[in-house]
């Protein structure tokens, strides 16, 4: 009996480890390629271990493409998006959770329905709207449309429902807090874990977004990191070492952020899906 459970435990870990290797290997391979010369990568047999060319490959990246500008653009868009999303979504989510007003249910259900509309249906006209209001090539075009999004409001409302006690709000009201005060001084501190998740979720989404920035930004000075990366791959695809070093550089910051917040982030994703 003891032997049998030992075997089944071993088998479980074996299967999981195979999965982990498949998950992690592409990152390893990316790092290996970034540290080798192109001829070492394309050689048969290829070099399967780390080399010492990372610095030279990175220098080529910076010499050929404005990587820093792309990174700066992404960072500006991501940070403003996160701050704005947290504010507008938590304000609306809190209001939906804790205040009764005529039409509340209708408004909330219609908000949920908009989540099911595939974004690509409005894609072309959204671009035309941006062109008409002169927002093509602007940061706003990447920030504003997502600021108060249905998922974020839904998420905060769900969390608020269960965690912000009505008695506390009542006490605040007696102390003369107006509705914004109740939100800012009472709800926000309690909502912090939900805000942390929504913030990371938004950051990762904006950081990785590709199709919309590809369409709405034509000026290389405003390219986001993912567009820069795709350009790097498209134009210089003969210099593997360089393309891979650029890809590594673009990928690492997000992976670090993910590892730091992974617990909160993963349980947030799981809750969001299961509680629906």
């Amino acid at each position: 009996m003891v032997g049998k459970s030992w075997i089944s435990k071993g088998l479980t870990h074996l299967v999981l480890l195979i999965g982990v290797v498949i998950s992690v290997f592409p990152f390893y391979w990316l790092a290996v390629m970034s540290t080798n010369t192109t001829s070492q990568i394309l050689h048969f047999p290829p070099k399967l271990i780390f080399g010492n060319q990372l610095w030279i490959n990175l220098k080529h990246v910076f010499a050929n493409i404005d990587f820093l500008q792309g990174f700066t653009n992404t960072l500006i868009v991501a940070v403003i998006s996160v701050v704005g999303t947290l504010f507008f979504c938590s304000l609306a989510g809190f209001t939906f959770a804790k205040f009764k007003f005529p039409g509340r249910n209708f408004l909330f259900v219609s908000l949920l329905i908009t989540m099911m509309i595939p974004s690509q249906i409005s894609f072309i006209p959204s671009f035309i709207v941006m062109a008409k209001i002169g927002w093509v090539n602007s940061y706003q075009s990447l920030i504003v449309p997502g600021l108060a999004n249905a998922f974020g409001i839904f998420w905060i409302r769900q969390y608020c429902d269960g965690s912000v006690p009505d008695e506390l709000l009542e006490a605040g009201r007696l102390d003369g807090c107006n509705q914004f005060r109740l939100y800012w001084n009472i709800a926000i501190p309690i909502l912090r874990p939900a805000l942390a998740f929504l913030g990371i979720f938004t950051f990762i989404g904006v950081y990785n977004d590709y199709l919309w920035p590809l369409v709405v930004i034509n000026n290389p000075d405003r390219f986001t990191l993912q567009v820069v990366l795709s350009q790097l791959n498209g134009i210089y695809n003969t210099d593997y070492g360089m393309v891979m070093a650029g890809t590594l550089l673009a990928t690492v910051p997000l992976i670090i952020i993910f590892f730091i917040f992974s617990r909160n982030f993963i349980s947030g994703i799981a809750d969001g899906a299961v509680k629906d």
Partner: peptide, 11 residues
Amino acid sequence: FFVTNVTSIVA
């Protein structure tokens, strides 16, 4: 297992 999902599709 989850780290693959936060990697950009471009990468």
